[in-house]
Amino acid sequence: MAQAASVTRNTRTKRRIDWTPYLFLLVPLAVYFVWIIAPTFYTFYLSMTNWDGIDPYPKFIFLDNFQYLFTKDRTFSEALINNLRWVVVFITIPTSAGLGLAMVFNNEMRGGRWYKISFYSPLVISLTVIGLIWGWVYHPRAGLINGFLSIIGVEDPPGWLGDRGLAIWCVIIAAAWRQVGYVMVLYLAGLKNIDPSFVDAARVDGANRWQLFRRVILPLLAPVTTIVVVISIIDSLRAFDLVSIMTRGAQSTQVLANFMYIEAFNNYRMGYGAAIAVVLFAISMVFIIFYLSRVIKDELEY
């Protein structure tokens, strides 16, 4: 660093190549390249092989994995549909519930802090624990729900996680339960940044509370909404822990992330698993690029 230290400069008007920033970035970029960037590309290569995890020279089979995936594999379409269900629930229910709660708790009220804590405390709990706790809630005999149903005299209560039609929704509900608090926190921060004079102006103009919300507050929250939607989609595509803990993908609850894990690490079809990962990556990339394009626009305006 001694060399960098001896060169003084004004960074804003600099024209000659200045190596100082690269010195700072050297180690972070090297670590990032080896563990994140290069692996991403390497997975593309692996997806075109029949690697089994042991063979040092896997055979190159080009797009065979993808062909099988798209045309023959039933579990793939099941996983895709479940991820789609997950996304749809995530961008509707927790988003509107989180927004509603944020609107309620944005007003100062006695005990407001404690209510807020009740709603966002599930966020600090690991998904593993949430999966275990909800597994107990859904337990077919002694669990919270069926225990209650038998008290009120329901003869033949549903099997929840054991029921092929219900299981995936049970998992998604547990995930959404955790997500609500997150969305609420993001919207609360957004509401705090709204200039109160907009709200006052609308009040003076005689707007009622619904109009105020619909015409003033909601449009002003649009940037937060974008982020909430992007986060919800990315989180839905990443969904793994809950499925792995609650059902291991059985009972028609397979999702892409767990499907990839099972194929690669349980069935040792690593090339095939890589192909699933590439599909997951491609879907995520649509939203990553959408989000990046907004960040880029902001940066260039800055």
Binding site: T40, L46, M270, A277, E299
Partner: peptide, 22 residues
């Protein structure tokens, strides 16, 4: 900016794309 955008994109990657190479 390219490096900055790369870091942002990296935060949103699905872990599955990294599992096998790592």
């Amino acid at each position: 900016l390219p490096i900055y955008f790369m870091f942002i994109a990296g935060t949103m990657l699905p872990f599955q794309i990294l599992l096998l190479p790592v």
